[in-house]
Design a protein around this nucleic acid. Sequence first.
DNA 1: AGCACGCCGACT
DNA 2: GTCGGCGTGCTC
Length: 803
Amino acid sequence: MRYAEVAVLVRARAVDRLFDYLVPEGMELFAGDAVEVPFGAQRVEGYVLALKDHAQDDSVSYRAITQKLSGQRPPLTKDLIELLDFMRKRYFCTWAAAVSTVLPPVIRSPGKRYYQLDRQWVALHGTQDADADLIAGLDKVFTKKARLAEATLLEKGFSRALLTRFVRQGCLTLELGGSTVSRRSEIWVNAVPDAALNRVRSAHKRELLILLQEKGAPQRYAELLEQGLVTSEMIRSLKAQGLVQVISKPVNESGEETEKRLALTEEQRAAVASIVELIDAKKHETILLQGVTGSGKTEVYLQAIERALQKGLQALVMVPEIALTTQIVARFRRRFGSRVAVLHSRMSERERRHQFASIYEGVADVVVGARSAVFAPLDRLGLLVIDEEHEATYKQDRDPRYVAREIAAWRAARANAPLILGSATPSLEVMYRVESGRYTKRMLKERATGRPLPEVRIVDMRQEMKMNQQGLLSRALRDALKDSFEHQEQAVLLLNRRGFSSFLLCRECGETLTCPHCDVTLTVHRTPEHTLLCHFCNYRAPLRDTCPACGGGRMRTFGAGTQQLEQEVLSWFPNVRVLRMDVDTTAGVGTHEQILSAFSKGEADVLLGTQMIAKGHDFSRVSLVGVVAADAALHVPDFRSAERTFQLLVQVAGRAGRHGREGRVVIQTFAPDHYAIQAAAAQDYEQFYRTELPLRRRLEYPPFTEIAQFIVTHDEESKAREGAQQLHHLLEASLKGCERVQLLSAAPAVVGRIRGAYRYQVVVKYHSFRAVSKRLREAFDQAVAVCGNGVSLHVDINSWMTL
DNA sequence: AGCACGCCGACT
DNA sequence: GTCGGCGTGCTC
Ligand SMILES: [Zn+2]
Ligand SMILES: [Zn+2]
């Protein structure tokens, strides 16, 4: 009898172990397959992690697997199965949480497999191919029917391995679950010249036709689909109306590069060479590729990937979610054609299924995606890339709270593949690892585009206050706006996220109050009465009107919303067209892109929003960027606030004003001398790093320590607090005698309530995870076991504290 | 987590 | 008498 070790998809810590099941006679089952199993009185989904010939324990009566859910390809590859174990140990998550994080829910339906022969391919390659006889055989089999089920081909003596190989070569096309997986043909869409637009009612269709007419050349259907510009239904009806042409174009072996390699600078060449050397030697190493915006990091990735592909290996590229909608995906497609699979959270289920199928079938060997793409089921990884490595989007914001860089590093090490981290402003963690010799660094200093940096102006808001200018817009920023509007140019105003914890700021000297132990901004806390609170260690102080630094009496809370900003802009410039982008205006899916595209089409003069618009957006027509309140970012209650502010400001300055006239950046702040602001204005990473690092060392923050954050939630505040205190005691007992570990008191979490439930946190800082992980785990498990009804416990190892 | 089993109160 | 409340305990 065969037995399967199954991870059952039940997300409860009480059943967080593997269960053994009998494999029914005749069931073709492999490690990694999805199954349905009886579990108590229910039937649940599970994943086979291992197969064995003997049962664990004779006293247990084993039940049998009810059915196999996956098709021919086990959803979990070998290294992903091993990764589950790593995730459990590293992030303290359950098997179920690990599996459902690694695999999106849509990829397990088997679906019947049909094949089609690509006659064009046969005509081009068939006769001189080494498999010429087999291909001739296939040609014969396919004469009667163009589309054959897999079973039929197996009967005729073609093996599965052979069929797979032919699909990867492009000789056969595989149809699976309604989508076609193929290396070769791609659908292109073109506008019919002089199509009568007035016959088209739907705004989406009209938009598409205008786009196609503007481009004046056929566009890849897959690309349009990824950008959310078309649906298959739209194309069908437009085609029926005779408004578009649908063309099927073949893609040749090397991906039919419609875009050729770009010429490299000396620095780029050296960077590519060092990566290629590692790929050739199958050597794992992490390389920081530090280069400013426009220095050509992407071209380095592309050429390194090309090498990996030549060697029959695969590449995994992560970019921030927001950047996926921009040109970067199109660029990968132009270079590698249908060998590219794109994964991100906003795709339709069907599209995601198709992308995964092309990966599983080995047709796609380059995966470009957001954070979750780090789990792409690639089994011959030759290169991994994380672009804009410092972005907070690489930290998962729900359980398990993994860091994509850690997962990527694990997979890269396992595959003996290099991991490339790209950034203009590397995180301190990464740069510190470079300095301590664990990572290597490659610099790209030249700007391939040669565009001048914008002029950066820092406005001292304390002076504005002295001049009795109370509003959000300084005179300098108003002048700049006026100038920009007069030249018919666009402006962007950035304000921090709303709903941010408020803090006290002296309007006369810019002083803020920070915790004497943690150096983190004290926030105004409303329960039970108004106090100043440190979310890290629970230090409390009374509110005050007078400034401890200058003695002035205007210590006030700080924070404004985009609505207020909108009103103020309109009061100064009643005739400008304002677009606002915040949580209120971007509730729906895709509204982000809609607002940005409306703005880039020139439908507004000024765009107001949070930092999100500073990310992926191309500011090419924007001549002015105003950072309305840099202090809001600077004084977020997080030890990383200076780093985040620096990164944001550098990014903004690097993007403003691409064409023609030099761009302008205006930064308003009550702390004009702050090192993060000064260094950002000078685009000087080194200066920032040299100032920030000693501060982190002194206060024992990352990169010198790591932070674990435990969150206790309950509907009643007292229960949440007591639970956190109990957890604190358990941690205290368990960590007794550990050196270089700090356990901080239970305190209200930065976000104190979510959907009515109160949240408390306990923070542990330590130097070595290996030294404390067992003890942390032990205390956490005990807390889970003793916590009462309604209390929920969460843990965030290597917390980024960005909530 | 879910579901069955079980042991007490107020309904036909 | 029995319908249903949710406390307890188990899931290969
Ligand atoms: Zn002051
Ligand atoms: Zn503190």
